[in-house]
C-alpha cells in the first residue's frame, strides 16, 4: 500500500468509520447545541473544518519541531490547549480583517470552538498515533468532515422532529440523544469497511 493510498484510507476512516461525534463522543456540545437548523449546523461544520485542519497542522508542527527535540513531550496537553485557544483568536482576527465575507458566515461559531474537545482530541490523537505532519492534516480534515456530516444530518432530522408528536417527557434533549443513538447505530455499520 503506497503512502498516498494510506492517506485516502485515513481520510475515509477518520471521517466516516471512526466518526468523531458518533463513535468517539468528541465535540458533543456543538453537536447537541447548534443542530437546530441545517444552515447553522453547516456554518458550524465549516468553522470546525477550518479550525481543526489548521490546529492539527500547527499542533503537529509544534510537537515535531519544538516539543520532541527539547524532550518536553509530556507538556503536550498544556501546550496544545493554549495553542488552540490562541489559534482560534488569531484565526478570528485574521478573518475579520482580511476575509470579512467568510468572517460573516463563520465568525459566530469560532468562539464556541475553543473548548470543543474535538480539536484538542484530534491534536492529541495525531501525536499518539505517530502521524507525520501531512497525515495529521489529513486526519484533522477527515475528523472535521465527519463532524460536519453528523451535525448536518442531525439538524435535518431535528427540523423534522419539530413537527412530530413526541411524548412530553422526551421533549428537548432526550429525543435528540436517542436520535443520536440511532444515528450512531447506522454509523456502526461502517465499522468493517476499512
Amino acid at each position: 500500500m503506497s503512502y498516498f493510498t494510506g492517506l485516502i484510507l485515513l481520510l475515509v476512516a477518520s471521517a466516516i468509520v471512526n466518526n468523531v461525534v458518533l463513535s468517539q463522543f468528541l465535540g458533543l456540545c456543538p453537536f447537541l447545541g447548534v443542530s437546530k437548523k441545517v444552515e447553522t449546523a453547516a456554518g458550524m461544520g465549516g468553522a470546525v473544518i477550518f479550525v481543526i485542519t489548521i490546529a492539527s497542522f500547527v499542533a503537529s508542527l509544534i510537537y515535531k519541531y519544538v516539543l520532541a527535540p527539547t524532550g518536553f513531550e509530556y507538556m503536550q496537553t498544556i501546550v496544545f490547549i493554549l495553542v488552540i485557544a490562541a489559534l482560534v483568536q488569531f484565526v478570528e482576527m485574521f478573518l475579520k480583517k482580511s476575509v470579512p465575507a467568510l468572517y460573516e458566515s463563520l465568525g459566530v461559531y469560532l468562539p464556541l470552538i475553543t473548548t470543543n474537545c474535538a480539536v484538542l482530541g484530534t491534536a492529541i490523537n495525531n501525536v499518539t498515533n505517530n502521524y507525520d505532519i501531512l497525515e495529521s492534516v489529513i486526519n484533522g480534515f477527515g475528523v472535521a468532515v465527519g463532524f460536519t456530516i453528523a451535525i448536518v444530518i442531525m439538524a435535518g432530522i431535528r427540523e423534522k422532529i419539530e413537527y412530530n408528536d413526541i411524548p412530553e417527557t422526551f421533549k428537548g434533549s432526550a429525543i435528540v440523544l436517542i436520535t443520536a443513538g440511532l444515528m450512531a447505530m447506522a454509523f456502526l455499520g461502517f465499522s468493517g469497511v476499512i
Partner: peptide, 22 residues
Amino acid sequence: TLFGLAPGAFIVLGFLVAVMNV
C-alpha cells in the same frame, strides 16, 4: 452488546434525561 457500544451510550443518556425531566 449494543449497550456497551456507542449507540447504547446515547440511548441510555437519552432515557436518563427523560427520567430527569419527570
